[in-house]
């Protein structure tokens, strides 16, 4: 039991992602090894083109790699078929994107209910879980607003609620503050702290130092390789 808990939730070994072939080929990932354990709060940093987004897409089972192995919560992802991948995305991972990626012209509540619906959760339970998630992000009074009626910060919080609604093992955020002002950024990062404090694993891709500063572990990337991996005790007030 202890061993199972200690098993890394993310276990990437020798990940290579190659675009193109021959002389024109580019290695977006050039042999990356990364283990993230349950309850960690990791920031993956690096300039654009460093491969951090590619790594995040692979971790999130949104993209496949050229060579390498990837275990998510003990499941080997590269061997899964289309349907099993959909299940993994739905149950194991909660996504947060830079551009929010809410379904347009659909209410906040319906957006949050969507991943639950794809898992076959019905009626009252689905509604309650979606409402609970919206309350966690502080949008309990905006449930029937459509994305265009919400501010950027509010839209991103709907996206967080959507990611949380399925109680995923891993919360995966790709430049979550990239389109937000500093106040919304601050609120969102507080939310991440809160989520991590509740025991959920959080992985954030960012190029902003103040965002990364909230994490307990910072992984720096350059040219498709990890160049540093430092853990630090969070400086708590």
């Amino acid at each position: 039991m202890q061993q199972l808990l200690d098993a890394p939730i993310i276990d990437v070994r020798g990940a290579v992602k190659q675009y193109g072939a021959g002389d024109a080929s580019i290695f977006a990932l050039d042999g990356v090894d990364l283990q993230v354990h349950r309850g960690e709060y990791v920031a993956i940093m690096g300039p654009s083109g460093s491969g951090k987004s590619t790594l995040m897409n692979i971790i999130g089972a949104l993209d496949n790699m050229t060579t390498g192995k990837y275990f998510l919560d003990g499941i080997e992802i590269d061997t899964l078929d289309e349907n099993a991948l959909a299940l993994v995305r739905g149950r194991k991972i909660g996504f947060i994107f830079q551009s929010f990626n809410l379904i347009p012209r659909t209410t906040a509540l319906a957006n949050v209910e969507l991943p639950l619906a794809y898992q076959g959760i019905k009626g009252k339970e689905r509604r309650e879980r979606a409402l609970a998630a919206l309350n966690v992000v502080g949008l309990g009074d905006r449930i029937s607003h459509e994305p265009t009626e919400l501010s950027g910060g509010q839209q991103q919080r709907v996206a967080v609620a959507r990611a949380l609604s399925t109680r995923p093992a891993l919360l995966l955020a790709d430049e979550p503050t990239g389109a937000l002002d500093s106040k919304s950024t601050h609120d969102l990062l507080d939310l991440f702290d809160q989520i991590n404090a509740a025991g959920r694993t959080v992985v954030v891709i960012t190029h902003e130092d103040d965002v990364a500063a909230r994490a307990k572990r910072i992984v720096r990337m350059r040219d498709g390789k990890i160049i540093s991996d430092t853990s630090h005790k969070k400086v708590s007030a």
Partner: peptide, 19 residues
Amino acid sequence: VERTREIGIRKAIGAPKRA
């Protein structure tokens, strides 16, 4: 274009292809 993005979002949050 819009629908394809929407399909991408749906897939990212766990929608099976069949659905």
